[in-house]
């Protein structure tokens, strides 16, 4: 369970992690500046397990994977949004950051609400308001990438399986 932090439509990757911090790749450095230009001081207030709630087209703009890395490394456990920009969507899957598409949850959840999400079903519970919302299920292919811990972990596991089979 985590506290919700709500943002608006079209939250771009410059807002999630400004380019001025991209001269370094360390996750902790990126995390310290997560959402800085949308909500200064955000990274310091976030607690482990909290959830970002965005509107339409979350993560639009640059291809920087630094954006979902910053969110994940800041301790956020998931993003719920009405829709995602496609590169952010791919990047989040690829690093194993759970993301959910659910317009109803976005409408129902306010900043500070206690929220929990069931990964396998995509069921979102708003503990504070006593409401439930069903996120659009990810295709099994994409759920498998997240469950494996991201694309690299999945390829590694596949390669190990292949080597064992070849041996």
């Amino acid at each position: 369970m985590g506290k919700a932090w709500k943002f608006g439509d079209n939250i771009d990757t410059d807002a999630i992690i400004p380019a001025r911090y991209m001269n370094k790749t360390e996750a902790a450095h990126l995390a310290a500046h997560c959402m800085e230009d949308a909500d200064p001081g955000f990274a310091a207030r976030v607690r482990q397990g909290d959830i970002i709630v965005g509107g339409r087209n979350f993560g639009c703009g640059s291809s920087r994977e630094h954006a979902p890395i910053a969110i994940q490394a800041a301790g956020l456990s998931a993003v719920i949004a009405e829709s995602y920009a496609r590169i952010f969507f791919r990047n989040a899957l690829n690093i194993g950051l759970p993301i959910y598409e659910c317009a109803e949850a976005v409408r129902g959840i306010e900043t500070g609400d206690d929220v929990e999400v069931e990964f396998s079903s995509g069921l979102i519970r708003n503990i504070t308001k006593g409401a439930e919302y069903q996120a659009r299920p990810l295709p099994p292919f994409m759920r498998e990438i997240i469950a494996a811990g991201g694309l690299i972990a999945q390829i590694r596991a596949r390669n190990v399986r292949k080597e064992n089979a070849d041996a």
Partner: peptide
């Protein structure tokens, strides 16, 4: 356009989804 992990996987496998 893709992110860095897709690029890494692409460099390794020559493929992408």
């Amino acid at each position: 356009g893709v992110g860095s992990t897709d690029m890494a996987a692409g460099m390794a496998t020559g493929e992408a989804w």
